[in-house]
Simulated scan of single mutants.
Amino acid sequence: MSASFASALNAARDAAAAQHYPQGALYVVATPIGNLADITLRALHVLQLADTIACEDTRHTQALLRAYGIEKNGGQWLALHQHNEAEASLSVVERLRAGQRVAYASDAGTPGVSDPGARLVAAVHAAGLRAVPLPGASSVTSALSAAGAVAQSAEGFLFAGFLPTKSGERATAVQRLSVETRCVVLLEAPHRIAELALALAVLGDRQVTLARELTKQFEEIATQPARALPAWLAEGTQRCRGEFVVLLHPVQPTQDEGDSLRVLKLLMQELPLKSAVRLAAEITGASRNALYESALAFKQEGTEDA
């Protein structure tokens, strides 16, 4: 056990042991994306409690657990990754039906987002069994929280994951995303980030945040126009190292607020409120949430005038 985590297991027991952890349930465990201190106390407790540890890479997860002082024997490990997820899911279901607690962890972060796990959880649900989430580290939400790319008045974000690796297909995907008004979250590997940057450069002045090595010693988060991405990456070889989260910031409205509100008022004269808001947002590029709030205010003003 790492000396830094010598007291972690006791803290996990004290903080989490009072909760009920039913047998015959799958526990979907988020693990650190780089910094070992980002493990949760509930995760540590469940990893100790689990009868089986299913994971993307048994060697990786075994090393992770040993860092916290958790040891499991050979029969308690089950490899479950993208190449065997369907078959291995059947084994998990069998163990759950036998009353085992099974914990599933991908190599880093929250399973089932861009890592394996979704098919496993679907199989567990199809068998009428329970899946229990243990939230924790996520590169997606970590990057979003530090980039300021999703304002409260915006319409959320789109998780697009990894774009196609072939240049033509990637260019088509970028063209499709160029008209997406919401923040777009992409993931990319270090050996392909330069190619992705070139593909995104066609977006011109659209702001893009690159977040690499999140939670690690050399974490770097930088925001610049899409056209500047290739040059920024070329400034140092270290800038192409590590896993990347790439955020395309929301497209700025092309019309001013007065124009969007005038369009909204005209549409409200002919359409139900929600339909008027949806069309006004599509026509003007303004935030649907902001237009909806304005529409409610207009409606209230009309009621008071009457």
Rank of each mutant, 00 (worst) to 15 (best):
A147K: 01
C55R: 00
A199I: 03
G99Q: 03
S4N: 14
F157D: 05
A122W: 06
V113T: 05
G128S: 05
A8P: 11
D107S: 12
S178F: 11
S178A: 15
L271V: 02
A295S: 06
V277C: 10
A228W: 02
F162R: 04
W77E: 07
T31I: 02
H191P: 01
P190R: 05
A88P: 08
S138W: 06
T215R: 02
V246C: 06
A222I: 14
V202L: 09
D115M: 02
T181R: 15
A126Y: 03
Q217C: 12
E195M: 12
P133T: 07
P111E: 03
V132H: 05
P116H: 01
V184W: 00
A295K: 04
Q152H: 09
L90S: 10
D115C: 04
H20P: 09
K265N: 11
E188A: 12
S260R: 02
V246M: 03
T284H: 01
L266I: 08
L44S: 01
T52R: 11
R119L: 13
L41C: 05
A131S: 15
L129P: 02
A201F: 04
K72C: 07
L203V: 04
A108Y: 02
L296N: 11
L273C: 06
Q19H: 14
W232L: 11
H125R: 13
N289C: 04
T110D: 02
R192E: 08
Q252S: 10
P164S: 11
L64M: 12
I221P: 01
V185A: 06
T58S: 14
R182D: 07
A50W: 09
V251Q: 13
H125V: 13
G109T: 00
T165F: 14
K274R: 12
L266C: 00
S7K: 14
L90P: 00
L229W: 01
A189L: 08
I53Y: 07
S294E: 14
E71C: 06
L271T: 01
G99K: 06
A16P: 04
A37Y: 00
S142P: 03
Y292P: 01
E169L: 14
E282Y: 00
S2C: 05
M1S: 13
G204E: 15
G285N: 10
A154D: 15
I283Q: 13
A127P: 06
V246R: 00
A146T: 13
T110N: 04
L261C: 00
D14P: 01
C183F: 06
A18Y: 11
E219V: 01
N289A: 06
G75F: 04
G117S: 07
C240V: 13
N289M: 10
L44K: 03
S287W: 05
T223A: 09
S106E: 07
T165I: 14
A286D: 10
V202K: 03
H45V: 08
A143I: 01
V208M: 09
C55E: 03
Q152M: 10
G69K: 05
E180N: 11
E155T: 09
S275C: 10
V46Y: 04
I193F: 01
L9K: 06
V263R: 10
K216S: 02
L187P: 03
A126E: 13
A123I: 02
Q252F: 04
V179A: 15
V46N: 03
L296M: 14
D256I: 08
L96T: 06
R176L: 15
L203G: 01
F5N: 11
T284A: 07
T40Y: 04
A231Q: 12
T52W: 09
S91I: 13
A105S: 13
E56C: 07
T181Q: 14
S260K: 03
